[in-house]
Structure formats: structure tokens, C-alpha cells
Design a protein around this nucleic acid. Structure first.
Lengths: 210, 210
DNA sequence: GCCTCGCAGTAACATTAGTTACACTACAGG
DNA sequence: CCTGTAGTGTAACTAATGTTACTGCGAGGC
């Protein structure tokens, strides 16, 4: 593990902390689609993401979903942080968007390292900072943009994440994540295709003007 | 100052920390409507709220606003925390919703106390936690609720905050905060009045079924 | 008292999004 | 090769929200 840890977090943490992480952390590989955290779960460890992408979702009372944001390499889950400390249930669902590698840290270490390592504190604060900003952007998207703009952003974000201009999703899946209906998505996608921005196929979409 | 500090934060912080806060903090009273932080500001101190309420707003490119959430007694501004650490500009606007009292802490103390006092770390983490949850709730409101439900929630929240079942706002002001138009708000308010939930007057609204 | 201006009520219409229904097609599995 | 199913395209309609335009009211300033 130490190799991947160093590569991704070496510039953030001092050697002694890296050593501690190496000792208590567990390396994990998870497959695309794996539900890492579900709403209502209690969390016993926090993840440091090495590679891949995790999508964070919110659910309403009717079970309808909404995509909040994605986590990438070098990120951790701020929700986990708050859950661990407050010992409250998870408010969100986390699903592997792609295959992913990560290191799980037992939560007791959170507090211990926060006292001991400045770099750890900074990392935790920075994670919160990033997450708050992503939440802000999500709010901007929902509140200020129309569905067609949100859709286009969504497609571009997906393409960026997977480093691939082909988005492998059905209209139905997209509709879930944007919290709307399949028909609406099909309609808007067709409009985007007519504008020459994308190319529609069964089960995948080619993004033409990233 | 020490009196109000003790009353509001005495149970959170140990005596030595309270003493430090007392030494470096500045007591401030601000009037309703005062713009404490604006978008783009750099922040040099963080506020501990003693009394009153602060509203936190987001703005889009067209200058249209959206209410994110309110801060109350015992809260601090998580955005300030992240701004201080990252030395980035503020992404939000903070306006005193009512007259308010607060203690301003120079940001250098943030890091110092985080290393020194467990209770301070917990306070900071808990603040982040609260803010993230409030952002989540805001997202829920915008994404999952219709405008009439959002409006009702807004009115009830206002009444709760000011401890008064009369909301002193024009329709236009409400429209700004919910990011819609005055006509829409007037229409929905009239509907709520017909349902017996509120009573409309010039410049204020009486909430009847809190 | 009169005038002005901000506030609120409402109609009429446009746009956006959500819903229902149905047709068509590609693909997997027998 | 046939068939079932999931995915997609599209029409027709409803609901929700946004926009424009106009009216009337009430309080403060002169």
C-alpha cells in the first residue's frame, strides 16, 4: 500500500503520519456500482480515495434521488467526518461511479491525529472546504439553471471524471440523478443532439464539444 | 464581555480557552440589515454569535439572490472558517436578519487553538457538521419541494427565528430570498391566506398555524 | 388635501417541466 | 430465429412557474 499512499498523499502528510496511516489503514478495491454508504448507516471508518470516482446522492421521502457531487482522487467524504464525530446516521448515499481504490481509516484516529498533526487538521479542514463549495455549486445548479443547462453540465462532468467523451448511461439513469423524468431527459437530449453538442446511441452518449 | 461569553459558550469551552477568547476577541453589536460579509470579501476574523440571527445568501451571475440558511446563537460561520484557512474570497453574503451581538476572533487563533484545545476542534468540526446539514436541507427544499411548500417553510422559519408570529417582509423581499418573482409570491400567499394559514397585510404577514 | 410612490392583487399569457400513453428498435437468451 | 425486455422517440396533455401589464390602495411628504 505504501506506494499508492505516498503517491497520492505524500505531499500532504509528513512521514510519521504516513507511517501511521500505513499501519492502521486498510487498502480496499471496490467495483463500479458498489454502494459504499447508504442513508441511515453508521460509519466506523473514513475513506481516503486513491483512484476512481464516488458519487454522493441524496434521497427525498418518496425515494427519489438527486446527485450531489462526485469525489475524486485525493478526496475524502466530509459526511463521514461529520458522522463519525457526531455519531449520527449518514444523510447521504455513496456509490462507486467507477472502480475505485481507497484506504479506510478507523475513526478513532480522526481525533487523535487532529491533535497531533497539523497536516491532518489542514487536510480535514480543506476537505470540509471543498465539500461546502461543491454543495454550493450543486445549489447554484439546481436553483439558477434550467434543466437543459444542468443536463449539459452533468454530461461534461461525467466525461471529465471518466476521462472519456462517451457517457455510458441510459436516459433513465440520468433522470434519476437529476431528479426528473426519463421523458424530460430524452426530450432535452434530443434537443442537444439537434444542436450538434452530443450524439445519441443506445446505452451511451457521445459528447462532441467538451 | 465575559458574562455573555460564559452564558453562551461556557458549556462548550474550558476556562483557559474562554479566557483566551475574552482577551483576543472583540465584542460587536450590529444592526438589522447590516451586511457583515459580501461576496468576494477576504475575511480576517471569525464571528461567534451571541444573540440575533444572520442570514446567509448566495448570488448568481445575474445578481439574483437565494437564501441558504440562518445562523443563530451559538453558531459560527463555516464559510468564514474555510475562507480563513484557504485565504480565498467569500462565496456568500451574510446579512444581519435581526440586531445581533457577536464576538470576533482573529483568524490566526483558529489554527493555534485547534492544536491546543480539543473543545475548540470539536466546536469547529461541529460547526462544519451543522452547516453541511443546513446546506443539505436547503438542497432538499429547492430540489424536492414546490414553491408553495418552500414559502410556508420560509415563513415558519422566520417566525421561529424572531420568536414572533408576524413576519415583517414585503412580497418582493420574500421573492428575492426564494429566488422567484414577486407575482408568484403574491399568488401563493393569497392561496395560503385562503387556506387560513396566514393573514396578509401591507408590509407584514401574520402566521396563524405555526 | 393632494400627490407620489411603494406595495399588493389579479388577469392573461408564455415557458418549462412533469405525466401518460404508445410505437419502435436493438439486443440477449432460449 | 423468435421473443421478451429494456431503451428510446414522440405526441398530447397537465401542472407549475415565470412574465407582462394594469389596477387600486395606503402612507408619507409637501
Amino acid at each position: 500500500m505504501i506506494q499508492e499512499l505516498k503517491e497520492n498523499y505524500g505531499h500532504l502528510f509528513e512521514a510519521t503520519l504516513l507511517e501511521e496511516i500505513n499501519q492502521v489503514g486498510t487498502f480496499k478495491e471496490i467495483p463500479e456500482g458498489f454502494v459504499m454508504i447508504d442513508i441511515g448507516n453508521y460509519l466506523k471508518s473514513m475513506p481516503l480515495l486513491i483512484s476512481g470516482a464516488i458519487k454522493i446522492l441524496r434521497e427525498d421521502n418518496d425515494g427519489d434521488e438527486l446527485l450531489l457531487y462526485f469525489l475524486e482522487k485525493g478526496d475524502t467524504c466530509a459526511m463521514t467526518l461529520t458522522c463519525c464525530l457526531g455519531e449520527t446516521k449518514s444523510e447521504i448515499r455513496a456509490i462507486a461511479e467507477t472502480d475505485a481504490k481507497l484506504i479506510m481509516i478507523p475513526i478513532q484516529k480522526m481525533e487523535e491525529w487532529s491533535a497531533k498533526y497539523k497536516s491532518w487538521r489542514n487536510f480535514v479542514f480543506k476537505s470540509y472546504h471543498n465539500r461546502l463549495n461543491e454543495m454550493l455549486e450543486t445549489i447554484d445548479n439546481i436553483a439558477f439553471l434550467k434543466m437543459d443547462e444542468r443536463l449539459l453540465k452533468y454530461l461534461n462532468e461525467k466525461a471529465r471524471l471518466t476521462n472519456d467523451n462517451i457517457v455510458h448511461n441510459t436516459h433513465q439513469e440520468i433522470a434519476y440523478e437529476l431528479h426528473t423524468s426519463r421523458v424530460v431527459i430524452s426530450r432535452l437530449l434530443k434537443k442537444l443532439e439537434n444542436l450538434g453538442k452530443i450524439e445519441l446511441h443506445r446505452n451511451f452518449i457521445i459528447i462532441k464539444d467538451i
